[in-house]
Amino acid sequence: PDFTLHWNGITIHFKGIDEEQFRHLRELLDRGVSLEELEELAKELIK
C-alpha cells in the first residue's frame, strides 16, 4: 500500500510499505529524526 505523511511542512510519499513499517516511520518522525536519518531509513526500505 501507499502512505502519505505530512511532516514539518514536507509531504512524503511511501510506496509499497506495510502499515507496520509506516507506523515505525511515524514514531521516528514524532521523536525528531533528522532528514539524514530519514534518507538512510528510506535506503534500507528500498533494498
Rank of each mutant, 00 (worst) to 15 (best):
H6N: 12
E36S: 13
L25M: 06
L38R: 00
I12E: 01
R26E: 14
F22Y: 11
N8G: 07
D30R: 09
L29V: 08
L35M: 11
E39L: 15
F14H: 01
H6W: 02
R26H: 09
F22W: 10
F3Q: 01
L5Q: 00
I12P: 00
H24D: 06
A42W: 13
L38Q: 00
E20P: 07
G32H: 06
W7E: 03
L41W: 15
L25Y: 04
V33N: 05
L28Y: 05
A42P: 00
G32M: 08
L38D: 00
E39G: 08
R26Y: 08
E37F: 10
D30L: 12
H6D: 09
E20I: 10
I12L: 09
R31H: 11
E19G: 06
F22T: 03
D18C: 08
Q21N: 09
K43V: 07
T4E: 08
G16Q: 05
G16M: 02
T4P: 00
E40H: 12
A42S: 07
P1D: 10
H13T: 10
Q21E: 08
L28M: 13
N8C: 06
E37V: 11
E39Q: 14
I46Q: 11
T11D: 14
G32R: 03
D18H: 06
L35I: 12
A42L: 15
E20L: 10
I46P: 11
E19V: 06
R31S: 11
I46T: 09
Q21T: 12
E37D: 10
R26D: 02
L38G: 01
E27C: 13
K43Y: 04
G9R: 00
I12C: 03
F14P: 01
W7I: 14
T4C: 08
P1Q: 12
R31F: 08
E37M: 11
E44Q: 12
K15D: 15
F22K: 06
D18W: 03
S34W: 07
I46R: 07
K15M: 14
T4V: 11
H6Y: 06
D18Q: 04
L25K: 00
W7Y: 09
D18S: 13
N8Y: 03
T11N: 03
G16E: 14
W7V: 13
I17M: 05
E40M: 13
I10P: 00
E19D: 09
K43T: 09
D18L: 06
L29W: 05
E19H: 06
E20H: 15
G9V: 01
F3W: 09
L45V: 10
I10G: 02
F22S: 04
H13D: 13
H6G: 02
I46H: 11
G32Q: 05
G16D: 15
A42G: 06
I17A: 03
H24Q: 15
G9W: 02
L5D: 00
L28Q: 08
I10N: 06
D2Q: 09
V33C: 09
G16S: 05
E44F: 02
A42C: 10
I17V: 06
E36H: 14
K15E: 15
F3P: 01
D2A: 07
R23A: 12
T11G: 01
Q21L: 11
T4R: 04
G9F: 01
L25T: 00
I46K: 06
V33I: 11
I10A: 05
E19F: 06
G16V: 04
G9D: 05
